[in-house]
Nucleic acid binder design. Structure first.
Lengths: 323, 323
DNA sequence: TCAAAAGTGTTATCCTTACACCCATGT
DNA sequence: ACATGGGTGTAAGGATAACACTTTTGA
């Protein structure tokens, strides 16, 4: 327990700022100042003198740089791996980044966005294999066979806890294992380990079969890894905390709410069960108004019952099975 | 999204190393090098040149300093609040610490401990209100009334999401709300905010009623906060991942397993339900041996079935209700 | 009148919770 | 024999998952 002087390191805050629009989840991406064509997440320095906590610092530079009004904010993870930061003209200085998840309503920020050097992009373009709303995505047919080949390649060291095969089975639902929509990060890390995403090749990892085109849009630094962490956390949180409402307008139809949950969790839900869940949890109350803009029969409008936050311990939407 | 040069800050890794012995959860505490009488968690610097990742760095200095053999390791949270570090001769340099949870078996480390300047202490001495195994702990009678007074004191700003009263209700199960054993951090933070733990007074917060003796043993810096985070995380994780076995010897009785889970979660469990849970999850297998050292009828010995890790998605011990 | 989306009723099944009782050993 | 802890069977209640059907609008 010696009190060695600690290494000075640069600390940055990286934000995954999420909004849902047109039944599609979006992530705020920043243009690269150094003309890297790849997208990146917005980030800013942490200055302990100016800001008492990380969260205050984060809110400050997000507001200053993007004029976006974030509501819910939560720390995700602190990333400090050497070698996952490579970029063209790397300075060599070590940097760690504290990843944050933030939620916002796109409607609140329409004006801000036109001015900012940043914009929202649909997140499934970075993770096309994560969208199961219309059933198993076709791209998995291009992912699983190479992964299986990669898994056979690794001498299955019985000491290393889960061998390549088991990791593949559990992450991608191969061989009877169910698909778990929360394992977003595990899947990305597996693809990285197999050299099937561009970031792995950029970081100097050998693709075991270089012919395969890299999967999904890449991001700068380790930002896609941070985004994967954010999606995973949000998908999990949805089930035990009423965070969806941070992404909804004040008034909404139940179908719109369901579509938002489906958009985030990447899977299709059973209508009645979803409605019963929302009703029995008493998460919403009718406004009395209806909306006729939905197509068929007018839908009743609801608003979030903020009171639930202080009534019950921890209400969420624990979706349950597939369907 | 400007690429401002980032502030250099010192980064340390702080570890909450847990073991269970004699049906009591323990935490490894380090003697203070600067003759502070308060206990602290072991910590070490992170040197990105020597170690590729935080986890590798952590394992390295834990092994070097304590000769303790940690198994399971998991990142908890990164703490960087200014003003929660105060100590007698503070240098003023800002430090952030990445908190880690680590699990070990005390039996594996008996020899190492005799040599090290560190030792395991029962964790409930830092959080006496968290041990509900023998029912509601008496100390709550000394905690709740002052907290209620504190809650009345705060003008209940309706804008600030949960008012003091609601926080109190939800954290401490006052007024019909159930006790949630996972809210360890929330409870500690509430006590800190109310000035009822020594750390709050040390950090310059005014105790709203200074006569009340501070609750539980204090720790250095913000280490008790990190420990609260570790306990909360471990209590939650127990329910959906088979982490208990990281704390058990190779062979154990079902009662010993139950006692360990109870020790961590701080509550009493229903025997049959616990056993059925363990059985239906197929988490253990009988060794064929029995132990006669338990008192009455000899108990069958079991071992963890490592295979479950690769069979089912995520087996744990989702305890369920009270009893 | 028909398409499109909103909205409802009901059942089989599993899991959770809690009850009360029997068994094998040491003293 | 009896105290001590080990070990089991089973029934009530609630939550979940899946089924198919009716209603109200716009075109």
């Amino acid at each position: 327990m010696a009190e060695t002087p600690l290494t000075p390191i640069e600390v940055g805050l990286t934000a995954a700022i999420v909004a849902v629009e047109a039944e599609e989840p979006h992530i705020l991406v920043a243009a690269d100042p150094k003309s890297d064509t790849r997208a990146g997440l917005p980030f800013g320095p942490f200055d302990p003198l100016a800001h008492r906590t990380f969260e205050i610092g984060l809110r400050a530079w997000v507001a200053a740089q993007t004029a976006i009004n974030v509501g819910y904010v939560e720390q995700l993870y602190t990333f400090g791996d050497r070698g996952r930061h490579a970029r063209p003209g790397d300075t060599g200085a070590h940097m760690i980044s504290v990843g944050y998840l933030a939620l916002t309503r796109m409607s609140d920020n329409a004006a801000a966005l036109r001015a900012a050097a940043a914009g929202f992009e649909p997140w499934y373009q970075y993770f096309p294999w994560e969208d199961w709303r219309a059933g198993r995505p076709d791209i998995l047919d291009a992912i699983v066979p190479p992964l299986e080949q990669w898994a056979r390649g690794g001498r299955d060291d019985p000491a290393r806890s889960p061998g390549r095969r088991e990791r593949l089975r559990r992450c991608f639902g191969v061989g009877g294992s169910p698909w778990d929509e929360e394992k977003v990060l595990d899947r990305y890390e597996l693809l990285y380990a197999a050299g099937l995403v561009e970031e792995a090749r950029r970081d100097g990892r050998e693709a075991f079969r270089a012919k395969i085109p890299p999967l999904g849009e890449p991001m700068r630094l380790d930002h896609r890894r941070i985004l994967a962490t954010a999606i995973a956390r949000l998908r999990a949180k949805l089930k035990y905390r009423p965070v969806v409402f941070e992404l909804m307008p004040d008034e909404f139809t139940l179908t719109a709410l369901q579509r938002t949950v489906e958009a985030i969790s990447g899977r299709h839900l059973h209508k009645q069960n979803f409605r019963r869940l929302v009703e029995t949890a008493a998460l919403v109350e009718p406004t009395g108004e209806t909306s006729t803009t939905t197509g068929g029969r007018p839908a009743a409008l609801f608003r979030f019952r903020r009171e639930v936050m202080q009534e019950r311990p921890a209400p969420g939407l624990r979706l349950g099975g597939r369907s």
